[in-house]
Write a protein that binds this DNA or RNA. Structure first.
Lengths: 407, 407
DNA sequence: AGCATTAGATTTACGTGCTAGATTTTTGTC
DNA sequence: GACAAAAATCTAGCACGTAAATCTAATGCT
């Protein structure tokens, strides 16, 4: 990349690259390391490790800390050089481009959010307005870090639509999808960043990766207006050729479900309908204007013991348990993580759904849990994926001179 | 392995191994190659290629052909040494241990079946009888090749039950499953072979790998007594933590399906019930004794235009289309391959199911096709998987002296 | 202060794998 | 028989890695 001998002996360089990658992986998320530590971790010899560290330092990925035995792990003898990963060597951008809200974050290479910006957006906005919103939010967030856009290495945008393998929008299939992803990838790639557009549920799944524990098979289930799942099998996100794995239109065919409407939509509609019917049963929900009644009201009322709300909640639990049963039954999942903006309010619903599960699955090995990542799951997943992208392409890139030099 | 310098420099040996593996992969399924051909294919230098070929020849994987320019591709110059893969350097065993039939095949490393043996078996047989049947079929098939069991490198057995990741039977969950896999893995491992037990539908999916064309996402659907699918996503078979991906118990919850009964069971039961009701409608099927009436009769009668059989066939198509819709809708499949013993008779059913599909899927990108691999799909998949196993562990093994030396 | 101790850093020698280019062998053609 | 072509072989030489001896910095003990 700089001026090293270019591919004189391709095969042997491969080996070097493999080892460099291992070392980088070792430091990326961890504490500063000494050469001896790396020797133990990688099985390489001291000379090799030192050479690799020198190279990675020159390339801008590591800094040499000279604070000697500051780590305090030992007292005698010569203090070791310590190499530390530079999480601020580059920036990443993560965006949740939702239907009525765009939220952007700029993070360092540890995924720590340094700045954020959110803007509201009319769900009916046209392509141009949507692009402007994304551009605006991203630029504002980057500006707020006090660093240059040139320091950004990669950006990931989540959209509420399937995204085909190569990041190509599947717009021809569905005009709604096209509107949700009006060339957002190119928009960011024009900045000179590596840009990826990804489905929102898939990003939620990425965000839940740690939370998913050691689970090699799980789904992140977005439950708001429509159901949508991001599916991880054998430890990796599965998209499908059309990006449609976890698309839940098929719920139309499932008994007791009948549509892909999410729990938010269902709660609202059921409650409104029951109130409109006026079964005579008194409900505190009757005091809320029908047009403003939403899932949050219903769930709160249920917590207060309101009978109508309790009936609706039971319906939600039933539907959720069936959706989880279909997902887990076919995909042999260890876990379904209920996530999205309304997830925190769904404790009781999930608990009840868990209880209903054995009625639908012969051998329910799946565990339904509520995400604790809060409303910015998708954005967090976008940041995470951007970091992973940089990580996996790290050795193709030279950072020397980019960003602040200090640790 | 033989007596080379043991791991003097592990890292550099890794490189050698990588290249050897590439060369082996190049020859495995192809024509004999010259050094020049390999140079072009691998990008390695002549010296390296020749050294690798020499090594692989010593190890028993390749033979040096000296029939000069027999290939006729060129006429001038010194004739190249040609190296050919030795498909008979080792044997593999593939077994379909079905409910009422055990079928074993012995094949070479190209997957060409050299000998086979099938035995019938009472579906109610206990563990011992089932083990004996497998042992008997395998030994007979091996004997028929005229070669020793020591030449067998790997064996794969398909069973009609989920198999957990490590080949562990999931017997505690279900006594039927335990009976279907009474320690068959150990049985074959005791012969000194690498033994793998795998679900039958998964093996069908492996067998359909070529037939699945370039499809990176497809399912092989067994449709006989019960539905069961082997699922390939991102080019690899997906099993799930409990080996239950593609288990179709969940069909209980699908509208218009209601059970995981396969098309064979459905055809039989529907026809019998209709005849018993005696709707008055004359049907040629009435001439078949009820206890012997099965799917084959029904499908044949439908082809002859029998109205009752046609009604049943329509039901089969409807059910099949729904099952495919669920699979493809959730998994974003390119293709569902209908397979199993009765597949060849299902042309009309599949055609009709294709037509019904748009009624269930908004955007049916999936293609339903009938397998043309015949009744031994599972066994073929077992052979295929065994070959792949040997291929991927090839460099751990020394074949020198094993098997016939000639090509 | 001097000295052994400890552990990291450096140097040197060497093995292995690969490449590149010159050389030789084997064939066919004129 | 000279020449051209294709392939194998030989010879350097380089890159990467290991191993072991040597060097160097910090510490505790006397």
């Amino acid at each position: 990349m700089t001026d090293g001998p270019e591919a004189a002996t391709p095969s042997t360089h491969l080996l070097r690259r493999l080892n460099a990658d291992r070392v980088l992986g070792e430091v990326w998320d961890g504490e500063p390391v000494t050469a001896s530590g790396l020797m133990a971790a990688t099985g390489l010899s001291r000379s090799t490790v030192l050479a690799l560290c020198r190279e990675l330092t020159e390339r801008g990925w590591l800094v040499e800390l000279d604070d000697a035995r500051a780590a305090g792990s030992y007292t005698k003898g010569r203090p070791a050089l310590r190499y530390a990963f530079r999480p601020d060597a580059a920036l990443v951008v993560g965006v949740d481009a939702g239907q009525h809200r765009v939220s952007a974050a700029v993070a360092d290479l540890h995924g720590r959010v340094l700045a954020e910006e959110a803007v509201h957006l009319d769900p009916a906005s046209d392509a141009g307005a949507r692009r402007d919103a994304v551009r605006g939010a991203v630029d504002a967030a980057v500006a707020r870090t006090g660093r240059s856009g040139a320091d950004v290495a990669a950006a990931v945008v989540g959209v509420p639509a399937p995204v085909e393998a190569a990041g190509v929008p599947s717009g021809e299939r569905n005009p709604f999808w096209a509107r949700m992803n009006p060339g957002l990838g190119d928009l960011l790639a024009d900045r000179g960043w590596d840009a990826v557009v990804e489905n929102d549920a898939n990003l939620a799944a990425v965000a839940e990766a740690e939370h998913g524990g050691g689970a090699a098979a799980y789904a992140a289930l977005l439950v708001g207006e429509r159901f949508g799942a991001g599916v991880v099998l054998d430890g990796a996100l599965r998209r499908g050729p059309r990006g449609a794995i976890g698309e839940m239109r098929i719920l139309d065919l499932v008994e007791g479900v009948g549509s892909s409407d999410g729990l938010g939509a269902l709660a609202r509609d059921e409650a409104r309908r029951a109130l409109a019917r006026g079964d005579g049963e008194p409900s505190t929900l009757a005091r809320v204007p029908a047009a403003r009644l939403d899932a949050a009201h219903v769930l709160a009322a249920a917590d207060d013991g309101d009978p109508l709300a309790l009936r609706v909640r039971e319906r939600l639990a039933d539907r959720l348990s069936r959706v989880c049963a279909v997902l887990a039954g076919l995909l042999d999942l260890d876990r379904v993580i209920v996530t999205g903006a309304m997830a925190p309010a769904l404790g009781a619903v999930v608990e009840r759904a868990r209880a209903l599960l054995p009625g639908h699955l012969h051998d329910p090995a799946v565990e339904i849990v509520v995400s604790d990542l809060g409303p910015e799951v998708v954005r967090a997943g976008a940041v995470r994926m951007a970091v992973d992208h940089v990580r996996s392409h790290a050795l193709d890139r030279d950072l020397a001179g980019v960003g602040p030099v200090g640790a």
